[in-house]
Design a binder for these strands. Structure first.
Lengths: 248, 248
DNA sequence: GTTTGACCTTGATCCAGATCAAGCGCGCCC
DNA sequence: GGGCGCGCTTGATCTGGATCAAGGTCAAAC
């Protein structure tokens, strides 16, 4: 089959014409055709809500460009982010047709959507696709557990440093650059959204950012562009052990 | 195939001779034979460590009796529980032969283990088993996200109430009893382990338990046996909306 | 070029939960 | 039966981050 040039980010799955991690692994076969037949694109602006918790969701999707957040809200308004979706991440749960969380675009966003029913059929009939989805879900579970340590036991400063290192790494992976020495990237979240990610208030986020800046761990160019002069210095602030990574 | 009587808890999967949720769904076929061939049992006492993060793990397992905890520890000793495994829960990650977390028995524990390599082969060759495992992993991801809301945004009192309601519900499911009106069960964790679950100190756990007791939300018979006179009253303390549940 | 509003920073004060400290209850072992 | 240790409770004090409040920055709208 001829290699097609598609507007997908270059991610882990290097040998696949469709760059979605979810439906990939090695899909040089029929199911690619099937996927092409059931997919379509949606675009959102920063701040737009994609679905509210409880809404019907007749699609699943891969993030192509931009960033989306999953959040939970308590009746009195307390909010906690529980998922952050970057390009190549998967949105939606097979066999559940209602959203469990609010999903919001935190930057301009493009989704590549698959109609739910045919996608589920594909999943049922294509073992290697569902195995790939299992792997991705296990990775997300690891990320969630790392996040739980952050929420339960880290100080505000450690939380901010950890967050920055996570975003820096994900960004570097997508750009195919290393995370060592000087690293620069744009924050995909407002201070308030960072607070919802970290279980803090936006004032505390702001103060700790200022403090890391004062201490030379980060530079701020504008409100959103972060330069980390020495990535190791940042890592020292995260509270993680040096050779970190969940895979021990 | 003849119905075998095995010492497994009666869980969701009602029509299967093996009661592990992980390997079940509908396994009245050959792969049951295969599983029988590669499985064995291990027993642990309360407090025993099953594996340390980073250790080689040559098996995956279902919890048969008892409770196990997954915890992460920072160098300075801060600890966060990131998983709590009750009977029918699955331990171990396919395609990863090293433990990512410390695994400890918090009560006497029996595991039904499967040797890793043949289990992985089975998984690769038996789509409905890997699909079942995907479902279970997605459920765990939901639980982790609920847990993140608890860690990030709930007060100490709400954390305790939420924890008690979670344990009460899991226990009731296993015993096939309803969670309404008066509910009673034994805590499978020490105050310290509860603190590690909830991102609190053991003193705060103790104080909040006393406070809920004083307010008549719970009764304590001994240190570990909990009686909840009115389950709705407990739910009012959790901070969750009335019709809770992640599936909205 | 002024107004508006979203986003962010900084200061002052407060308080929930951490920390430090003492003591209780109970089963186990000598 | 006495001492010992583990798990738990309770009290006193401290503090990191929340809350309340004011003002700054910047881009888009008029």
């Amino acid at each position: 089959m001829a290699q097609r040039q598609l507007a997908f980010p270059q991610v882990e799955c290097a040998d696949c014409p469709i760059r979605h991690r979810a439906v990939c692994a090695r899909c040089e076969t029929d199911e690619l055709e099937q996927l092409e037949a059931i997919k379509y694109y949606r675009n959102y602006e920063a701040g737009q809500t994609i679905v509210w918790a409880g809404d019907k969701m007749d699609f699943v999707a891969s993030v192509v460009h931009g960033v989306a957040a999953l959040t939970q809200t308590m009746e009195d308004g307390r909010r906690q982010m529980v998922g952050l979706l970057l390009p190549s991440d998967f949105l939606g749960r097979p066999n559940r047709d209602r959203a469990a969380y609010d999903v919001t675009a935190t930057t301009d966003l493009q989704l590549c959507c698959f109609r739910r029913t045919p996608f589920q059929d594909l999943l049922a009939n294509t073992p290697h696709v569902s195995q790939r989805l299992l792997e991705m879900t296990l990775d997300e579970l690891d990320a969630a557990r790392e996040w739980m340590l952050l929420l339960g036991r880290k100080t505000a400063r450690e939380k901010i440093a950890s967050f920055l290192s996570i975003i820096a790494r994900r960004d570097a992976t997508l750009q195919q650059r290393p995370t060592a020495g000087e690293v620069a990237f744009d924050l995909p979240l407002t201070r308030e959204a960072m607070a919802d990610y970290l279980g803090l208030t936006l004032e505390t986020v702001s103060r700790q950012m200022s403090s890391l800046k004062k201490d030379g761990v980060i530079r701020l160019e504008g409100k959103r562009h972060i330069v980390i002069p020495d990535f190791d210095l940042l890592m020292d602030e995260t509270g993680d052990d040096a050779d970190g990574g969940v895979l021990a």
